[in-house]
Design a protein around this nucleic acid. Sequence first.
DNA 1: CGGAATCCTCTTCGATACTG
DNA 2: CAGTATCGAAGAGGATTCCG
Lengths: 226, 226
Amino acid sequence: MKVKYHAGVKRSYGQYCAVARALDLVGERWTLLIVRELLVGPRRYTDLLEGLPGIGTNLLALRLRELEKAELVQRRTLPPPGVATVYELTELGEGLREPVLALGRRGGRFLAERRDRDERRPAWYVLSMEATFDVALAAGGDVAYELRVDGEVFHVEVRDGTASFGQSSRRVPDVILATDVDTFVLALSGEVRPGAALTSGDLELLVGEREQVERLFRMFAWPRAA
Amino acid sequence: MKVKYHAGVKRSYGQYCAVARALDLVGERWTLLIVRELLVGPRRYTDLLEGLPGIGTNLLALRLRELEKAELVQRRTLPPPGVATVYELTELGEGLREPVLALGRRGGRFLAERRDRDERRPAWYVLSMEATFDVALAAGGDVAYELRVDGEVFHVEVRDGTASFGQSSRRVPDVILATDVDTFVLALSGEVRPGAALTSGDLELLVGEREQVERLFRMFAWPRAA
DNA sequence: CGGAATCCTCTTCGATACTG
DNA sequence: CAGTATCGAAGAGGATTCCG
């Protein structure tokens, strides 16, 4: 006698193990990538669709419901003006930052293989900066950066040997940098030197010194494959 | 028209993002749990089946092939006596240790909810010890432990503020401890005090001092939920 | 236009049976 | 012991439609 799976009974590994339990919640297809998007900041439904090329709208809706039920994500209605519903991580969901960054640190080893069809989104590389931040190179600095990549704006503050990231910022930036996603990737991966990109115009320095830009890309450089 | 399962190009998220790339390789169902098993030590095919209750044998075989192709896992044929093929992590696969442990650290929050049907395996909790190791409590110590849990043997060496784990060891243990998986879990989670378990006989101290046992379970205690 | 629900097809999973 | 083969069930992907 087969028991029919009715909607709502979630599949589980059925193991009393912390790793398996975590994967029960976030191990399904797309789920950790949704979390990745939300680690950069709150997002509207259509922002998520945009940031997750290939996901079906039905699947996104389903995953968001599951994440809400697991209390990893909550939806919030922004007050007017600009009324909108956004999804954001709960405190519990924030706890996934370290695992996701750790996964990204390893995954970087596989980015050497470029594939032409691959999508790129500025936010992914801002998150990579968080993963590859090199504390040793940040010592003594105190700089607020504003990055404008393909029109999207991000703020990075390096201070007291720590880096903080966000899309809004109270602080007036010391450095404002504008570029496109291609140049951004090449500068982080070390394939293009920031100085050269500034000269060619691929990187535009609106506020600040060239030297601060070079320092930025040194602090957040992707580790070179061996 | 039916096509054998070679023809299918592997599904990919198609994103030039380190997290997505990592999930292309290890994001499918069961894959990270296979890695979890191998993080404790090399395993034979049937060991893996045993340690992954619920996996289908076809799926295990398929996943191992994928992991081999991705060069995260390799198979090795042990020399006689005891001829057998084992699977083990490559150096690249070893790189998944941090992400898996990080996931487990978070997943621990969800273990408060006990479910009766959940399987338990000693190795999972030895891996949890690696995830929850508290450096501050290990300072100054130099102790080699042998843990025998439901007949499986593990070695833990705490030295110079670091802990190393394995199933074989060159060093003669200072402490030998035997128990069953239930007691092991309860002692790690803090629900049973090691002293009480020693008294009741659930925990057997074959070599060493009671005080070393209490120290062990303090160093590797699961963080208490808030 | 944002935020989904529905329908349909295709792929993957899970369980069992079978083999060198 | 170490896997293949098979097949029904569940999940994913895509297009379309619906609602406020």
